[in-house]
Design a protein around this nucleic acid. Structure first.
Length: 382
DNA sequence: CTGTCATTAGTCAGACAG
DNA sequence: ATTACTGTCTGACTAATG
């Protein structure tokens, strides 16, 4: 590994919503929200035009998965309940999530990047890190080439940050969005990084922000000014040392180009809260179906598991999990159902339930089997 | 024989991210 | 009638082992 690393972070702009705009170009410029549970596809009329659902018509428990920039301007962001967002933007268009299509465009943009720079770390469906250390071209040239390649392959824009490490590149890609690029060096840290809120650091979420705020820390510069001892007292050895380093822009984490999954899970929120006894049959069917789906996922990806766990979310949003590690690995639905049933016996059932989940951990690759890893060919999304 | 220490595995909750 | 789903990581605690 070279001493002077050059790492890019590439992030697709409003990815799910932008893919939907490829399919429905007439919605460009409008407030559009992607999300919800069981939403109907837009109805197509004889003249080829579409009838779209409006946010105000929505009834249910779904959340916003992504929104277009005009919708964000109205205060509608990812993770917000759809019932709540309907109050802010009743006339916004509501589209169902179409994961097939997103996976298709995800493959397209990653392949396009890989032809230019093959050392890629997958960070989910819409973003990647790229190790550019061994490339002779300047960062500006590389960033332009990458963005053009992604646009040519998908018709979609992305934003790129390039810096000596993943931490800074992730922050950088967000600084000029959408369709932007930001190059940062270590000497830019005081001027460009320290004024930013601590929440811009990947790994500092709402809870840590709240805790830091109470300690009088709101931006990254203030975090850098905190004595190490203070951070260790309030956040523990591991997190304390980590915060001390990230505030200085220090991050040696490598770009990881391959990794094995650690767990496979399925969960589902019910349309209404279910009672453990009164809705026993309904719950039992959902439970079995979750176990079956986990078993299918395991087979499809070529793994067996030794740990099975269940997850419940009660009506008051309180979550409990129980798991069990078996002496031997399993992979079929019947055995998963049996093990998950044992876990379920250990959870309190005094309250109504809104979510049930089943998880398989302790994964072991089934060598020699059809560890295909899923479909390689890109099927058409629409 | 008893107490202590280190290490590991297992379990559970919670934070975080995309 | 506000709050999805999938996955990773870490801290705290317990039990087992030597």
């Amino acid at each position: 590994m070279p001493a002077d690393r050059r790492i890019a972070h590439l992030d697709m702009d409003a990815f799910f919503a932008s893919v939907e705009l490829l399919r429905y170009p007439e919605l460009r410029g409008q407030a559009v929200v992607v999300g919800g549970g069981h939403i109907h596809q837009p109805r197509q009329l004889a003249d080829g035009s579409h009838v779209f659902a409006r946010l105000r018509e929505y009834v249910g428990r779904g959340v916003v998965t992504t929104s277009t920039y005009p919708a964000r301007a109205l205060g509608v962001f990812s993770g917000m309940g759809l019932m709540k967002s309907a109050k802010l933007a009743p006339e916004a268009i509501l589209l169902p999530v179409n994961f097939e299509a997103y996976r298709y465009y995800s493959r397209l943009f990653k392949v396009a990047v890989a032809r230019i720079a093959p050392r890629i770390e997958d960070r989910g469906i819409d973003e990647i890190y790229i190790d550019l250390s061994d490339h002779p071209e300047t960062s500006v040239v590389l960033a332009r080439r990458l963005r053009q390649a992604v646009l040519d392959a998908t018709g979609l824009t992305c934003s790129i940050g390039i810096s000596p490490n993943k931490l800074l590149s992730k922050i950088a890609s967000d600084l000029d969005k959408p369709n932007g690029m930001t190059l940062l060096g270590l000497d830019d840290i005081p001027a460009r990084i320290w004024p930013l809120p601590v929440s811009k650091v990947n790994g500092i979420g709402p809870r840590s922000v709240e805790k830091l705020t109470r300690l009088g820390v709101s931006n990254i510069g203030e975090l850098a000014a905190m004595p190490l001892e203070q951070l260790l007292v309030h956040f523990g050895q591991s997190t304390g040392h980590w915060m001390h380093r990230v505030a200085r822009g220090i991050d040696e984490c490598p770009v990881v180009t391959e990794s094995e999954p650690k767990s496979i899970s399925r969960e589902s929120t019910f349309e209404r809260d279910l009672h453990a006894i009164r809705d026993k049959l309904e719950l039992s069917e959902i439970f079995t179906s979750l176990c079956t789906r986990v078993a299918l996922d395991l087979q499809r990806k070529g793994y067996a598991c030794r740990t099975i766990g269940v997850k419940l979310r009660y009506a008051d949003f309180h979550v409990v999990t129980r798991d069990i590690t078996l002496p031997v690995s399993i992979c079929d639905g019947k055995k998963i159902r049996r093990a998950a049933g044992l876990c379920l016996k250990r959870v309190p059932l005094t309250q109504k339930i809104r979510l049930l989940g089943v998880r398989a951990g302790g994964l072991l690759p089934l060598t020699g089997g059809n560890a295909d890893g899923g479909t390689i060919q890109a099927e058409l999304p629409f």
